[in-house]
Amino acid sequence: MTHTRYSGYARALDTAARTATPIAQLTLTEPGLDRAGALEIQRLLMEERYMRGERRIGLKLGLTSVAKMRQVGVNEVIWGRLTDAMLFHDAAELAFSAYIHPRAEPEIAFILKRSLPADASLSETALAIEAVLPAIEIIDSRYENFVFSEADVIADNCSAAAVVLGNPVAPRDVGNLGMVMRLDGRVAQLGSSAAILGHPLRALLRAARLAADAGEPLQPGDIVLAGAAMAAEPLRPGAYVSVEVQDLGRVGFTVSGETP
């Protein structure tokens, strides 16, 4: 019974994403939905996408800022899967109409050259990195008004919608790199990568454990988004969004559509 209900939720979330039409929070009809149940819905949702031919390319972490965790009263990060259909590169154009209420977050991405077991140490994790990249994640909650509980957002693949990657650079210490996000050239958000769990490498360590626990350990070539260092900015048609990270360079994209 539970499985049938969960499959229904997964399909509803998938349809919401495909048609850019928001739905009501799952926890309104399923108030008892817990983290495990939400992860199961996310898994079923991803099955829908894989059946359409999408391929898993890595994962993203959310709630990686200590301040944010305390604010929502949890001390565990949340995570979602990335697929090839979500992947864009520097100077890409993203269609505004493909999303419901998209927001951009400045991030640091890792590309792995080795697999990582659940019990990977911090040094193993560091040595598994092939490259680091400046990145912008586009999050887009499939729920009305971007309002959700922790279980809701986990079921919704942690609002993952797209990721724009900059150019890879050789691994280096990314513990405290200055970051700036600009909208149409103007400064919108300022911060440091230290806001990501104190060091983005700690996020990668957690990603390795979470992925292995879910039975899909991180593999060579996987992309991991370490989490946002600053607040997200809403996108609007016609906008040019860029993120510059100390020592890593810049990544940017435009949003297609008429400026309203």
């Binding site: 200590v66 405290n176 790199l177 200055g178 970051m179 700036v180 400064v187 300022l190 911060g191 440091s192 990568s193 230290a194 806001a195 104190g198 260092a229 510059e244 990270v245 100390q246 020592d247």
Partner: peptide
Amino acid sequence: IDLQLCGMVIERRGEPVSTGVGMACLG
């Protein structure tokens, strides 16, 4: 040093309590 893009973090017992960047000071 890169005065504009230098990252800043203040930690209390190893936990970041403030983060920022050089540009936050008047650009």
